[in-house]
């Protein structure tokens, strides 16, 4: 499969997975995984950085349409899409020259873990802060962030171990 088509497929697969399956899990009443953010992890590093911002904003906005959250998903995913390059620099020490050869799966587990966990926690924290929209239930925000992050990360790492073994 060629690359643009694969990304296109990934975009809609993640959208429908999130709104029709994962939004209905509600473990212990309120814990949901937000797995659609792996779009940001899987999107290839490119010179043209604006593309990723735009597509992740679009993905977030479409999920907002489905879950009646205004622009919360869009805000959170655009934020981590912007921060992605910074974390790539910090954890993997890659320069702009290395971008075409960068593959997340071929990096060591420790680095990948740090990278994914940082972005996921930032996304979830922003998401729950905006969903809550006050400083009234701050403890709820933190517990929700913690448990949902764990759920998302478990799903992500299970998914990657399953889908990369064949290669």
């Amino acid at each position: 499969m060629n690359k643009p088509f694969r990304l296109f497929f990934l975009f809609f697969f993640l959208l429908f997975l999130q709104v029709f399956v994962l939004n209905n899990i509600l473990l212990f009443g309120s814990i949901n995984p937000y797995l659609y953010i792996i779009f940001v992890f899987l999107y290839p590093l490119k010179e043209n950085k604006i593309q990723l911002l735009f597509f992740s904003f679009l993905l977030g906005l479409l999920i907002d349409f489905f879950s009646d959250t205004g622009g919360v998903h869009a805000f959170a995913i655009t934020f981590i899409a912007y921060l992605r390059l910074f974390f790539v620099k910090v954890y993997f020490r890659k320069l702009a020259l290395d971008y075409p050869f960068f593959k997340l799966q071929s990096e060591s587990f420790g680095k990948r873990f740090n990278y994914v966990v940082s972005l996921t926690v930032i996304h979830h924290l922003l998401f729950f802060l905006l969903i809550n929209f006050s400083f009234y239930n701050l403890f709820n925000v933190l517990t929700n962030t913690f448990f949902s992050s764990i759920f998302t990360l478990v799903l992500y790492f299970i998914g990657t171990t399953i889908f990369t073994e064949n290669e």
């Binding site: 959250t69 622009g71 934020f79």
Partner: peptide
């Protein structure tokens, strides 16, 4: 890049408030 990012974030925040 940064300006586009700020634009998108303002848009998303505005939509959150009107919602």
């Amino acid at each position: 890049y940064f300006l586009f990012f700020i634009l998108l974030e303002c848009l998303a925040f505005g939509l959150t408030i009107t919602n």
